[in-house]
Computed example of a mutant assay.
Amino acid sequence: MKLSIVIPSYNEAKTIHLILDKVRVLQLVNDIEKEVIVVNDCSTDDTNTEIEKYINQHNFPISYHSHAVNQGKGAAIRTGIQRATGDLIIIQDADLEYDPNEYNIMLMPIINGHADVVYGSRFTSGRAHRILFFWHTIGNKFLTFLSNMLNNLNLTDMETCYKLFRADIIKGIHLEENRFGFEPEVTAKIARIKNIRIYEVGISYYGRTYAEGKKINWKDGFRAIYCILKYGLFK
């Protein structure tokens, strides 16, 4: 079995080598093979240089793709999914907010034959969770509530980055959103698959401030509401 790790990157020159280090040394359960796919979404900093330097310095295969024009996280994820050859696909941000060492926690429901899709929840874990913005938490919970209501789910963290899919399922979904609308869109489209088995496991969360490079903003929140309504109501 092979796990494809899709890493969308935009202006992550300071952290991309650190996250690649974590992925490189990670040992997956059941000797699952790793495939790393990095998609640089036309970064304006030294992300491209840092990725190429990393590839040249380490004996670690990385499938590297670069967008000529900035398109957004959702578009970068689509590029990564299209190029993935693994049996399973997981999304990994290029920052350090999520810990790749927790892939094994997420893999277990699929390995044990219970799940087709696994979400990593930042809100149901007994693990480390950085204390940050009150209104971000309220916003996340509202978006999750609205998504659950329209898709008849009981997720606790729809907006989480950590989503693990059976490759045949995610490759069979037509995805459209270019930015952070990917999260509500993919959730709505997965929810309507007949007999889909969605699981959720608790993960840690090492969130960033805007000074540290966080990019999502209030406009993305309104876009998320639009996407929840678009893909939840108009199926």
Rank of each mutant, 00 (worst) to 15 (best):
V6F: 01
I7H: 00
Y10E: 05
Y10C: 03
N11K: 13
A13N: 11
I16E: 01
H17Q: 09
H17P: 05
I19P: 03
D21A: 06
K22F: 02
L26S: 08
Q27P: 06
N30C: 09
C42F: 05
S43D: 09
T44Q: 15
T49K: 10
K53Q: 06
Y54A: 08
H58E: 15
Q71F: 11
G72Q: 03
G72W: 04
A75V: 10
G80K: 05
G80P: 09
T85H: 10
L88D: 01
I89F: 00
L96F: 01
N104Q: 12
I105H: 11
L107A: 03
I110N: 02
H114A: 13
R122V: 04
F134T: 14
H136D: 13
I138S: 08
N140H: 15
L143S: 02
L150V: 13
N152W: 14
L153W: 08
T156H: 13
C161G: 15
Y162V: 14
Y162M: 15
A167C: 07
I169V: 06
I170G: 06
K171H: 09
K171S: 12
E185L: 08
K189Q: 15
I190T: 14
A191L: 12
A191S: 15
R192I: 15
K194L: 12
N195K: 10
I196S: 13
I196Q: 14
V201L: 04
V201C: 09
S204G: 12
R208N: 08
T209N: 12
G213V: 08
N217F: 02
D220N: 03
D220I: 00
F222N: 01
R223D: 08
Y226I: 02
L229G: 02
L229E: 01
